[in-house]
Nucleic acid binder design. Structure first.
Length: 573
RNA sequence: CGGGACGUAGCGCAGCCUGGCUAGCGCGUCUGAAUGGGGUUCAGAAGGUCGUGGGUUCAAGUCCCACCGUCCCGACCA
């Protein structure tokens, strides 16, 4: 492509809305433009990169036995009523674009395709002989995000690859899942990501097991908890951990109410009471769709709200308002405790709240705390569960090492769905004994557009993006300098022609600009190889060859440069 | 959804508090000249419904109201 005719000029200044490096660079380098909140135009350069990512994904999916199809983005409400997800996606979470068509039928723009694919496949499958099946598509998805953010990272319209597997039994589903999992590793490796696979929560999609593929980046929205010793790794919202336990007092002491004015937060409280932080207790008041809940965690911990919601079996969960807290506890925020709450408040506690002798908790009275509290004597033991938030420094659930934390960008997520959709949607088959059984499903997503952003987040310097040859929009950025000189112009044109003839994808900067501007643009756009043809090179039939991630350029005869280019980009000679 | 901020030329901003002639600046764009391997220099020029609608006023980019749009923050505290 000739840059003189290319759409997507570079910007000298960073657009003010750009928050992350990837967002800023993709805008500045002319890869995309924003159309509205969370909605972007993929300009030609980004379009090419997306196509390359999609192609890698496609090849690996097909290699793993999946078959490509394309389902509609526009979906009828009926299917979502069948699966039972309409309410959650529209009214409760409000994450789905839904509206009425001209006849008054409710329709939505698909944020995902479990319903449609289940509908499609239930018509295909009637016998165990029809299984297994595996289909995928690469398509635009729509999600009315609460807060679109960071450009392509959290957009309202984005490109996703989603695959779905259908099996007759557990073993089949397991092997489909493992095949997809391996394909995901191959995809991440081919693109060249520095990534980690982690255990994850099956969440709203549902199902029994789930893994996420996280690209490691400081600006990642997810926190990964992992064990440097045994390799355990999980999304923080799903991670387990163990806490250090401490020697307990030999005897329970009398419970006591202590005045401590304005002690907000466990650190100053522990200091004031002269007790270790682990003896303190946080009691958090939550409003849920099933009433008010008081959740207790050890003072040095936080609540994992996802785990808490699962334990409670509730659909919605949020911290109570200060007004409600005052009403229920009779105290200002900061002094809630489990003793003396109204009977309608359900009390639950994390396991690590238990097995402590003489612990502290709020007294439900402004400025007062109870110390030397003991379950059984001072209050009935509540329901216990595991809902503390795992953190770096906690003990690994699988070995004795300390956990560490990293930030990551979720680019892939795979789920074992089981019969979550096949059962309500009646996607069934007859087995060899003639018994009717629901199909076992799996679903497997990859954020194609998010991968592009994740790459930039992971691979850039102060000058611009650094693409790998695998997903770069073009292999070579050919810079022509001194083009007003006909001899040089001809040399540059000829170089361009030969590169194209050899199958090297080339962006040819034929614009009448100064060298500095061209080199700056080249660095910003970040194609992996830069070739320069100029007064310096024209005489000797040479070109100047420079890799984006290296500092020095070298002068080479064209044929030698061509060999290097092909080998660097993995092109056949 | 709650809270906050912003909307002035293609991009980034000033002007608004304290209303007053032809609304400025930098970058970019166009013309000319010089320069010619890391955003060079000089001279000149074009380009704006001041988000939209209403109101106050002799007078509104500036004050008031509504709407639209964009961005940021949001429990980590018991």
């Amino acid at each position: 492509m000739r840059q003189s005719r290319h759409v997507g000029k570079t910007l000298r200044e960073t657009p003010k809305d750009a928050q992350t490096a990837a967002h800023a660079l993709l805008l500045r380098a002319g890869f995309m433009r924003q159309i509205s909140a969370g909605v972007y135009v993929y300009l030609p350069l980004l379009h090419r990169t997306l196509a390359k990512i999609a192609q890698i994904v496609r090849e690996e999916m097909e290699a793993a036995g999946s078959e490509e199809l394309l389902m509609p983005a526009l979906q009828p409400r009926e299917l979502w009523l069948e699966s039972g997800r309409w309410e959650r996606y529209t009214a409760i979470d409000g994450i789905m674009f839904a509206f009425k068509d001209r006849r008054g039928s409710q329709v939505c723009l698909g944020p995902t395709h479990e319903e449609v694919v289940t509908d499609v496949l239930r018509r295909e499958i009637s016998s165990y002989k029809d299984l297994p099946k595996n289909v995928f598509q690469i398509q635009t998805k729509f999600r009315d995000e609460i807060r679109p953010r960071f450009g392509l990272m959290r957009a309202r319209e984005f490109i996703m690859k989603d695959a779905y597997s259908f099996d007759a039994d557990e073993a089949g589903m397991e092997s489909s899942y493992q095949a997809m999992r391996e394909a995901y590793h191959r995809i991440c490796r081919r693109i060249g990501f520095n990534y980690r696979e982690v255990e994850a929560d099956p969440g709203a999609i549902g199902g029994s097991a789930s893994h996420e593929f996280m690209v490691l980046a400081k600006t990642g929205e997810e926190t990964i908890i992992h064990c440097p010793n045994c390799g355990y790794a999980a999304n923080q919202e799903f991670a387990s951990s163990r806490l250090e336990e401490y020697p307990q007092d030999p005897e329970p002491l009398p419970m006591q109410e202590v005045f401590g004015e304005g002690l907000i937060g466990v650190e100053p409280l522990a200091e004031f009471l002269k007790i270790p932080v682990w003896k303190t207790t946080k009691t958090l008041i939550y409003e849920t769709d099933q009433g008010v809940v008081a959740a207790m965690v050890r003072g040095d911990c936080d609540v994992n709200e996802l785990k808490l919601a699962k334990l409670l079996g509730c659909k919605t969960l949020k911290l109570a308002s200060p007004e409600l807290i005052k009403e229920l506890t009779g105290a200002e925020v900061g002094y809630a405790g489990p003793i003396g709450l109204p009977p309608e408040v359900r009390i639950v506690a994390d396991h690590y709240v238990n097995n402590r002798v003489n612990f502290e908790c709020g007294a439900n009275k402004t400025n007062y705390h109870n110390i030397n509290v003991n379950f059984g004597r001072d209050l009935p033991p509540p329901q216990f569960g595991d809902f503390k938030l795992a953190k770096a420094g906690h003990i690994c659930p699988r070995c004795e090492s300390r956990l560490a934390a990293d930030r990551g960008i979720e680019v892939g997520h795979i789920f074992k769905l089981g019969t979550k959709y096949s059962e309500p949607m009646n996607c069934v088959f007859l087995d060899a004994e003639g018994r009717r059984k629901p199909v076992l499903m799996g679903c497997y997503g990859i954020g194609v557009s998010r991968m592009a952003a994740a790459w930039v987040e992971q691979s850039h310097d102060e000058k611009g993006i650094i693409w790998s040859p695998q997903i770069a929009p073009y292999h070579v950025h050919l810079i022509g300098l001194n083009l007003e000189d006909p001899t040089i112009r001809e040399a540059a044109e000829k170089t361009y022609e030969r590169l194209q003839a050899e199958g090297v994808e080339t962006l040819f900067d034929d614009r009448p600009l100064r060298a500095g501007e061209k080199f700056s643009d080249a660095d910003l756009i970040g194609l992996p190889i830069r070739l320069t043809v100029s007064r310096r090179t024209a005489a000797g039939q040479a070109v100047e060859y420079k890799l984006r991630h290296e500092k020095e350029a070298i002068l080479l005869p064209f044929d030698e440069a061509l060999v290097k280019i092909k080998s660097f980009c993995g092109l056949n000679s």
